[in-house]
């Protein structure tokens, strides 16, 4: 297999995730798009790990998986709190901090 296959797949997933972050208004859907982005990065790490014959890339991928799990937990707790306070999780209505 060519390393370009993996890298291009990861690039496509990354761009789809970026589109999701820009286009989506619902906070849960934005978090899902962030998961897409993190997974594309993991594919890159695994591909480079295979290419160089070292397991360091896999170690990094496991770190990314753990941090992503923590991020989703805190992110969804924040979304729940925002929903409880405002009855809405539309991101464009959260504009108090924009001055």
């Amino acid at each position: 297999m060519l390393v370009v296959n993996f890298l291009l797949l990861a690039a496509v997933l990354f761009c789809i995730g970026v589109y999701g972050v820009i286009a989506r208004r619902n906070a849960v859907l934005v978090l899902m798009s962030i998961e897409l982005i993190l997974n594309s990065v993991n594919i890159n790490l695994i591909a480079f790990s295979l290419m160089h014959g070292s397991v360091d890339g896999q170690v990094f991928a496991l770190y990314v998986i753990a941090v992503a799990a923590a991020e989703v937990g805190v992110g969804l707790a924040m979304v729940l709190m925002i929903y409880r306070n405002r009855k809405s999780i539309a991101l464009d209505e959260l504009s108090e901090m924009s001055g």
């Binding site: 970026v18 972050v21 820009i22 286009a23 989506r24 208004r25 859907l29 539309a90 991101l91 464009d92």
Partner: peptide, 10 residues
Amino acid sequence: GLNNKSWALG
């Protein structure tokens, strides 16, 4: 209403 008004920019 799941998308922003300016979703096409993405």
